[in-house]
């Protein structure tokens, strides 16, 4: 491809990197990343991927921006309250980098639409920026069944975790966590609370994984669960084993269709 002078300048700090260069930046500009959820995790991930020049970014979110989101969901601003998050996210991305094509999906993901969304643009990498377990298992299962790499993450209070799934190269989310916990066992999102920066720290790790995957550099977090404790300021990389009994990626998989698990009540609210 031919770079404009403006692009050469915009991406100059990438292009100067030995592991990126002109070729690597071209890979980024040709890459397609799907971000499910534009909340605490998805917001910073989307903004950094946009700034990095990921050519196509898909944003999935049915929610609208609320005042209580703004403590951590930095892709949205005070003026966006009431606006669909996918649209607000699209506007912020375009303001950061007009090179990026943003595809918006104003839907809640479920067993009927997730595969279509992933295959809509044949996304290269998927980022799970959701805040609930039914969605996390759905994304995991859909990625395993369609053979797509994805980054899982979760944050709560002062803690976070993330892992990367690469088909055939290490465990999936379900290898580690067999089934979603029952809705009544999980403190509601509002009850639990989260330090605003947690999404920034873990969401940018997810964005880093997406960039590394596209560039084909470094070691990804496949086969590891990275845990982060902000109070102790401690990152730990826990090595994970493959679970041969995993019901979706194990030796004898029994899950062949996507499952709609019951959601927490606070996730069901419609606007």
């Amino acid at each position: 491809m031919k770079y404009s002078n403006e692009q050469l300048e915009r991406y100059s700090r990438h292009i100067i990197l030995k592991n990126v260069g002109v070729k690597g930046q071209e890979k980024l500009l040709g890459a397609k990343v799907l971000i499910v959820g534009t909340g605490g995790l998805g917001a910073p991930a989307a903004m950094y991927l946009a700034a990095a020049g990921i050519g196509t970014i898909g944003l999935v979110d049915f929610d609208r921006v609320e005042l209580s989101n703004l403590q951590r969901q930095i892709i949205h601003s005070t003026k966006d309250i009431g606006k669909p998050k996918a649209i607000s996210g699209q506007e912020t991305i375009h303001a950061i980098n007009p090179d990026v094509t943003v595809i918006t999906y104003q839907e809640w993901i479920n067993s009927q639409n997730i595969t279509d969304i992933i295959e809509d643009r044949n996304y290269d990498f998927i980022i799970d920026g959701t805040d609930n377990f039914p969605a996390k298992f759905l994304i995991n299962d859909a990625c395993v069944l369609t053979g797509k790499p994805f980054s899982h993450a979760g944050i709560i209070r002062f803690e976070g975790q993330t892992m990367t799934y690469v088909p055939g190269k290490g465990p999936c989310y379900r290898c580690v966590f067999k089934d979603p916990p029952p809705p009544e066992a999980v403190p509601s999102c509002k009850q639990a609370g989260v330090l605003g920066v947690m999404g920034g720290i873990i969401g940018t790790v997810q964005a880093t994984e997406a960039l590394k995957y596209v560039l084909g550099i470094g070691q990804l977090l496949n086969g590891y669960l990275l845990t982060f404790d902000a109070l102790e300021m401690n990152f730990r990389k826990v090595k994970l084993s493959q679970n041969r009994n995993c019901r979706i990626c194990g030796d004898n998989p029994t899950i062949r269709e996507l499952i709609d698990y019951e959601q927490q009540v606070c996730e069901l609210k419609q606007h």
Binding site: T130, N132, F133, Q161, P181, A185, P187, A192, V238, E267
Partner: peptide
Amino acid sequence: IEFLYFMGGGRI
């Protein structure tokens, strides 16, 4: 030994 926890909307 590693104890691995669900982490999402709520950690349990």
